[in-house]
Design a protein around this nucleic acid. Structure first.
Lengths: 237, 237
DNA sequence: CTTGAAATTGAAATCAAATTCAATATTATA
DNA sequence: TATAATATTGAATTTGATTTCAATTTCAAG
C-alpha cells in the first residue's frame, strides 16, 4: 500500500542512488531522536555527512522525504500480511495477538518513529488517510465476519466497523504512553513485548467475545481471568 | 490542576484584562480552525482585532498563551469532579459512562481544540505530563478498588494501573478518527454524543467485568449484548 | 587519458515569521 | 484640565530557517 520507491527523485546513477538512500536513513535516525517536527534539513544532511544543498538534488522538501521514509517503515514493519498467513483460520485469539504483536514491536523498537508517524498523520491529510486505510484494512477480517459471528446482533457492516474500531483503539494510548512518553505510573520494571501484546489482546478479546481467551494460550496475564463481575460485590438491579 | 489565571501576564488595568482575555478567546477560535501548529501570532491578533505588537504586551510567546488557553479549557470542560458527585457509589456503569460522556462531549463540540491538545501534548513535556496526570487521577478510583474488586487476581496497584490504562485507551482512537478526522468508514449518518459514549462504555465495561452492563441501562447498544463467543461457532481447544 | 553527465559543495539570496520599539492614544486620578 | 501610567500601533529589524546556484569534483564510458 505504500510505494517502495526504487528509482525515485533525482538519482541518475548508482552513486546517486546511494546518496539518496543515505539521506533517507539519516532522516530515520534524526526522526527517532528529534521527531518529525523538530527535524531540520541540516540535521539530515549533517547526519548523512553531505552538504546541505545536496538535499534538494534528491528531494523537494522535508515532507516529501519523510513521507517516503515513513511509508517505507510502515510497509516493512507494519505489514500484517506477512503474519496473517501463519495464523490458523478461525483462531481469533492468535489472529488478534499477531496484529497486536506487530504494533507493540514497532513501538518498543522505534518509539521515536512511531511518534513521528503520529505527528505526520496529524499534519498531512494524505498520510493520515493512508494510515487509516491501513488500519481499516486490518480490521477488515473482523468486520467482515462479525455479522456471521454474531448473527443475533444483526450488525450492519458499518456498525461492525465502529465496534471493531473502538476495540482496536484500546492499546494505542497505553502504547504511546508506555513507549513514547515512558509514563512512570505504568512503566514499572519493564514489560517484554510479548507481555504487552498479550495484555492488549486479552482486553480486546474480552470486549469482543465476553469471554477470556483459552487459558492455555496465556503466558503472562492469567491474573486477568479473575476480573469478573461475579467476584465483585456489586448490587445488581 | 490547571491555573485559572485571574491577573496573569502584562495586564495592569481593567482595560488590559479585557484585551488579554480577548486574545485568549481569539486563540481558541483560531485553534479550533487551524490547530495549534498552524496558528500564527498574526492570526490571533487579527482575530482579536488588535495590532500584532500588542501580543507581546500580554504574552511571552504563542506557547505560553496556548498553555493557558488549553489549560483553562481542560479545567472547564474535562473536570470530572463536577460529575463524579452525581454518580451513586458502587454503580460502575454510570461512573464509567460519566467519564466517557465528558470526553465524547469535548470531542463532539470542539474537535479542533481536542486536536490542538494532542498537538501541544506532543510538543511540550510539561503539558503532556499534566494531561497524563489528569488521566491517571481519573483512573484512580478504578485502580484503587481493583485489588479489592477482584481479590482473586491479586493485582498490585501498578498492574491495576496498566490494565485500567489499556481499557481507558479504548475510545481515544475512535473519537479522534470520528470527530477530528471524520473517517468515512465510521462516520455514518451521525451518532449522538450519548450513543458514542454508551458504545465506548459498553466495550470498557465488558473488558473490565467480562459481562454486559445491566440491560436496563442501555439505550442504543443493545445489539452488543449478542456479541458472545458462545454464539460464535469456533472450535475450542 | 579525455570527456561529459551527474554529484557535490557551501556561500549568498530569499523568505516567513517572530520580535522590538519609538511614537501615539487612552484613561483614571488628582 | 493636567499628568502619569498603561495600552496600542505598525513599520523596521532580527531570527532561523529554506532555497538557489555558480563553481568544483567525481567517475564511467569511449
Amino acid at each position: 500500500m505504500v510505494a517502495a520507491a526504487s528509482n525515485q527523485g533525482g538519482a541518475k546513477s548508482v552513486k546517486g542512488e546511494k546518496a539518496r538512500a543515505k539521506l533517507k536513513s539519516a532522516a530515520l535516525v534524526v526522526m527517532e531522536q528529534l521527531g518529525y517536527h523538530k527535524m531540520r534539513i541540516v540535521d539530515v544532511t549533517r547526519e548523512a555527512g553531505v552538504a546541505s544543498g545536496l538535499f534538494y538534488h534528491y528531494f523537494k522538501d522535508l515532507k516529501t522525504l519523510t513521507l517516503e521514509v515513513l511509508g517505507d517503515f510502515i510497509a516493512h514493519s507494519l505489514n500484517i500480511e506477512d503474519i496473517e498467513r501463519d495464523v490458523p483460520k478461525g483462531d481469533w485469539y492468535e489472529r488478534i495477538l499477531a496484529h497486536n504483536t506487530l504494533v507493540v514491536q514497532a513501538y518498543a523498537e522505534r518509539p521515536g518513529i512511531m511518534r513521528s508517524i503520529l505527528q505526520l498523520a496529524d499534519e498531512d491529510n494524505g498520510f493520515s488517510e493512508l494510515l487509516r486505510a491501513n488500519f481499516i484494512k486490518q480490521l477488515g477480517w473482523l468486520t467482515s465476519v462479525m455479522p456471521k459471528l454474531f448473527p443475533a446482533a444483526g450488525f450492519s457492516e458499518q456498525q461492525a466497523m465502529l465496534v471493531a474500531y473502538t476495540l482496536a483503539g484500546a492499546g494505542e494510548t497505553v502504547l504511546r504512553d508506555y513507549y513514547v512518553n515512558r509514563e512512570s505510573a505504568i512503566v514499572s520494571g519493564s514489560l517484554a513485548v510479548e507481555e504487552m501484546a498479550e495484555l492488549i489482546t486479552v482486553i480486546y478479546y474480552r470486549g469482543l467475545f465476553l469471554e477470556n481467551p483459552p487459558a492455555a494460550k496465556l503466558r503472562y496475564t492469567k491474573k486477568l481471568q479473575h476480573m469478573r463481575m461475579v467476584e465483585a460485590s456489586q448490587e445488581r438491579d
